[in-house]
Nucleic acid binder design. Structure first.
Length: 254
DNA sequence: ATGGCTACGATCCGTAGA
């Protein structure tokens, strides 16, 4: 079973790449972020044509998340229950007994900004939500764009980024608090080459210089992590014309 | 060298991303 996450940065622009990637990679479940479309404009028919079903929670211009799956999606829940938020950032669904939580965590803009405070508040709410979900779903995956590079090895130039957004201590602590619930970062369950990232700035020839961050992750509950046999980042779509600035992360489970 | 792209929805620039 392959479960992936990909911030597509506009499902409208990236749909041809997504369909090609689904055909080539054959994931069972894909969490998508930054759809940037209202639900009425979500390309459901195209995905169904490709053999997938989908649950989605979108809005115009910003944010938006979807779970695309070959098997039926049950018990679909958008948002973080009890946490009022205009941003469509969270979507949960159960697929063949696996609870899947698709996440587009706030960017935070700059340390100390209002958006930064929102990011930390949001993370606190997420932690409570995942704790509750884990209590009722032993097999759970939380996959998405976490907008946090958990360690210095997840940053191309830790000196340059020191204390900045995505790596500041409060953000890293908020991310670690998710692991403290018992979740595992599936990428780190395995030996990995150095300097593997999931996002590269569009500017500054960042992709060519591999000046990236690993901010997209597939987290798995203990019971699910025990079945994880592989996790890798697929750089191929980032090399295409008009790419998303994020690459897909793919985790494989037995 | 603190910018540099990209997407979007508004117009031909501002907002946001990370």
């Amino acid at each position: 079973m392959k479960l992936a996450t990909w911030n597509v940065n506009s499902i409208k622009v990236r749909l041809p790449q997504l369909l090609d990637w689904l055909a080539a990679t054959q994931p069972d479940i894909v969490c998508l972020q930054e759809l940037k479309v209202e639900d009425a404009k979500f390309p459901l028919a195209e995905l169904e044509q490709a053999g997938y079903r989908a649950a989605y929670s979108g809005q115009k211009t910003y944010n938006g998340v979807a779970i695309v799956s070959k098997a039926p999606l049950e018990n679909v829940v958008p948002g973080i229950p009890g946490f009022a938020d205009d941003h469509k950032r969270v979507l949960a669904a159960t697929v063949e007994g696996l609870r899947v939580v698709c996440l587009y965590c706030p960017n935070g803009q700059a340390v100390g900004s209002d958006k930064y405070a929102y990011k930390l508040r949001w993370y606190q709410a997420l932690r409570g939500y995942l704790a509750a979900e884990l209590a009722s779903h032993p097999r759970l995956a939380a996959a998405g764009d976490f907008n946090v590079a958990p360690e210095d090895r997840d940053v191309h130039d830790p000196k340059l980024w020191e204390g900045q957004i995505h790596v500041s201590e409060p953000e890293r602590n908020a991310w670690q608090a998710l692991l403290a619930l018992g979740l595992k970062d599936t990428f780190r369950l395995f030996e990995q080459p150095e300097k593997i990232f999931s996002w590269w700035d569009y500017r500054m020839l960042a992709f060519r210089r591999n000046a990236g961050l690993r901010i997209d992750q597939v987290l798995a509950s203990q019971a699910l992590a025990e079945r994880c046999s592989e996790c890798s980042i697929d750089k191929a779509p980032r090399k295409l014309e008009r790419p998303s600035d994020h690459a897909p992360v793919v985790a494989t489970f037995s």
